[in-house]
């Protein structure tokens, strides 16, 4: 088996492990949720009995008859966030986390094999980009969850990475080949690598912001129904949305300078390749839009009344612009970056 085929097989293996991790996360969520429900009815039982009482296979989330669809989503996130503040994780969540870490390692190995097979940095076309992007998202999560309690976002991460790799192998697949001359520059290594790293971290930040918005809404709903003043709830669910907000803020603060660097490196490369450092090419324009939206997010974070929900929307908008830049611009808008293989 040559190295290129090895890379392809490793991608397939990574997909398999990611899928198992995703399933285990889903099972854990279902367990936690049914556990929480069960716990609500039998409040007197010990916490250990509550979490251990439900079997994920017997009580899947989807067939739950009571509660409208919105209600289904909200408790899921709620229970997922329960975990992010709990001092210890459930065993299934731990297993899922390990699986995700292993899959991430296999994914990275596939990237390395691809690079060896091609004899260059393995991000020269959309297939390779999606493969490396998936690895970046997973790595950002694995590394990030050592510093922040973001294990609860694992199911989102596994899902996104699966979509990413799935598209890579079905739609974007390209065999190993040499680069077209205009891409053959060390700036490609620097510029694209920085963009991928920033993208991986932005992804986790966006997941945290999304979970924050759902959680915040749920907390508000709880407050209005139970009539408890938000400030007097002490260590109620309020802290959890604050944790999420802190996590997404910390990640964006980390990724924003990297993204800035990626844009500047791109400008330097453009000057060397096309004779101008900025030409409002669609890719450049959307990189600029992404940058401005994240800048708006950071400003919103230090503006009274904009912190929290409004800032989180800017985080999501920034991520949407980022995503559009990597998917939409390549597919629907022609420009100087159109060589990327789609």
């Amino acid at each position: 088996m040559n190295i290129a085929a090895l890379s392809d097989n490793l991608v397939a293996l990574a997909i398999g492990i990611y899928a198992v991790a995703f399933t285990v996360y889903a099972a854990d969520l279902a367990k936690a949720r049914t556990g929480a429900r069960f716990g609500a009815r039998t409040r007197s039982t010990t916490p250990a009995a509550v979490t251990g009482s439900a079997n994920p296979v017997d009580s899947p989330v989807a067939v739950d008859p009571d509660g409208p669809p919105e209600d289904v989503a909200a408790p899921d996130v709620n229970s997922l966030l329960d975990r992010s503040d709990r001092s210890d994780l459930s065993r299934t969540a731990l297993i899922a986390g390990r699986l995700l870490t292993i899959a991430c390692g296999v994914n990275i190995a596939a990237v390395v094999a691809r690079g060896v097979a091609a004899g260059r940095a393995p991000w020269g076309n959309m297939y390779e980009f999606a493969m490396v992007g998936a690895a970046a998202i997973a790595t950002a999560f694995v590394v990030g969850s050592r510093r922040h309690r973001i294990e609860g976002l694992g199911i989102g991460v596994a899902g996104l990475v699966l979509v990413c790799l799935g598209l890579a192998v079905t739609v974007l697949y390209t065999p190993v080949d040499a680069l077209i001359p205009v891409l053959n520059s060390y700036w490609m290594v620097i510029h694209v690598a920085a963009a991928i790293v920033a993208g991986g971290v932005f992804t986790i930040a966006a997941l945290a912001s999304g979970a924050f918005l759902i959680q915040r809404r749920r907390e508000r709903a709880n407050d209005s129904t139970s009539g408890i003043d938000a400030t007097s709830r002490g260590t109620g669910t309020g802290l959890r949305s604050e944790t999420l907000e802190r996590v997404s803020y910390g990640l964006i603060v980390f990724a924003f300078p990297i993204w800035t660097f990626a844009v500047i490196a791109g400008a330097v490369w453009a000057e060397a390749a096309w004779g101008r450092y900025w030409g409002w090419d669609p890719k450049e324009t959307w990189a600029f839009i992404t940058w401005v939206l994240y800048a708006a997010y950071l400003h919103a974070q230090s503006t009274a009344g904009w912190r929290g929900t409004r800032a989180a929307w800017f985080s999501l908008l920034g991520y949407a612009a980022f995503l559009f830049n990597f998917v939409g611009v390549n597919m629907w808008i022609s420009g100087l970056h159109s060589y990327a293989g789609v």
């Binding site: 090419d281 839009i289 904009w306």
Partner: peptide
């Protein structure tokens, strides 16, 4: 700061049409 957030949002929005519509002195074509 609120002005800054609003203007940044506006700037991001204002940059969008130029990436969708063809541009003079900008596009390769």
């Amino acid at each position: 700061m609120r002005t800054a957030v609003a203007l940044l949002g506006l700037l991001a929005f204002a940059a969008i049409p130029g990436s969708v519509l063809p541009q003079r002195n900008v596009a390769t074509d």
